[in-house]
């Protein structure tokens, strides 16, 4: 099977959808002539032209809102935020307009828009550029939230997101853009709301999303190697809709759960998942659900300290061992 990068997988998904549907456009800051700040859209302007690949001024509120308005009339915009952190500049357009339009119109208006970009820390760009707003986004009924951790899922989920009739916030990761994985040639879709067991295990379920899954897989290797612990790793892939069944099935099997994510701990996705597990699989638990997040402060700039602040293989292993005590 061909091996391509996460970045190339995203590009392939958007390209295939642009070719499939004349209403799909890619817009954002530097996506066209500049070839994308992170080169996700490299070559797409040359291939598809300025009608389909559109550079916007630095006006997130206006261009995201414009995408919402265009979506009401049947355009299917894929809007790139250079950093997902800039969502806050367009907060009203995303969470008052995109999220609520269908509801406030009693179902008369749809908003098939994808808002995508990297939402991660670990690149020493400081607190303003390192937000991980999965839980903030998923908090809003009407919004769907997707966080792929592999090239395969990046492509399959992006294609599903573009075809979705609801607004989808698609959170990528600059540290994953260059990571490679097997991606089949041609058409396939990964449905939203389907978690994936990345590795089977018996002693503990490490559940999470985003790049933390890659760390969890390495942690599972180490736990096996050094402690003979068999950890199952479950990647949510999609935060909302949420595959509760796969989470609960894993916990019912292993009886212990650790949630890993890059977000801050307060009201995080892991907090929600812990509540769901407590509610629906309490009798299967041999230990409290543990959560491993970034250390609770704004993202620190200092290079060695940012590494400490974020989840790491060391910290995940330590948390897993505590869960198994």
């Amino acid at each position: 099977m061909p091996v391509i990068t996460y970045r190339e997988a995203l590009r392939a998904a958007m390209s295939e959808e642009i070719e499939r549907d004349p209403n799909v456009v890619l817009m954002g800051e530097e996506v066209a002539q500049f070839n994308g700040a992170y080169k996700v859209s490299e070559g797409m302007l040359a291939k598809y032209g300025p009608k389909r690949i559109v550079d916007t001024p630095i006006s997130e509120a206006a261009f995201i809102g414009m995408g919402v308005g265009a979506a009401m009339l049947g355009v299917r915009p894929v809007m790139e935020l250079m950093f997902f952190s800039f969502y806050s500049v367009a907060f009203d357009q995303i969470f008052n307009n995109a999220a609520n339009l269908r509801y406030m119109s009693g179902g008369l208006v749809n908003c098939p828009i994808v808002i995508r970009g990297p939402a991660n820390g670990g690149t020493n760009v400081g607190a303003t550029h390192s937000h991980t707003p999965e839980s903030i986004a998923a908090y809003h009924p009407g919004i769907k939230v997707v966080v792929p951790s592999t090239a395969y899922d990046a492509k399959g989920l992006m294609k599903s997101a573009i075809r979705d009739n609801d607004p989808v916030l698609f959170m990528e990761n600059t540290l994953l853009y260059g990571e490679s994985g097997e991606v089949p040639d041609g058409e396939y879709l990964v449905p939203l709301g389907s978690a994936k067991v990345m590795r089977e295990g018996a002693d503990l379920s490490i559940i999470g999303h985003g790049r933390a899954i890659q760390l969890a897989l390495k942690s599972a290797d180490l736990l096996k190697e050094k402690h003979n612990i068999s950890a199952e790793v479950v990647d949510l892939r999609s935060i909302r809709p949420l595959d509760e069944e796969t989470i609960l099935a894993s916990v019912r099997k292993t009886n212990r759960a650790l949630y890993v994510e890059e977000s801050k701990p307060f009201c995080s996705v892991g907090a929600m998942v812990a509540a769901i597990i407590s509610d629906k699989a309490f009798d299967h638990l041999d230990a409290p659900v543990k959560r491993l997040t970034s250390i609770d402060s704004p993202a620190i700039y200092s290079m060695p300290l940012e590494k400490l602040q974020l989840p790491s293989v060391d910290r995940i292993c330590q948390a897993a061992l505590e869960t198994l005590k």
């Binding site: 509120a61 206006a62 261009f63 995201i64 809102g65 414009m66 995408g67 919402v68 308005g69 265009a70 979506a71 009401m72 009339l73 049947g74 355009v75 357009q93 307009n97």
Partner: peptide, 10 residues
């Protein structure tokens, strides 16, 4: 207002 611009764009 941005939505209105979006209608015009569409």
């Amino acid at each position: 207002i941005p939505l209105g611009v979006g209608l015009a764009y569409a």
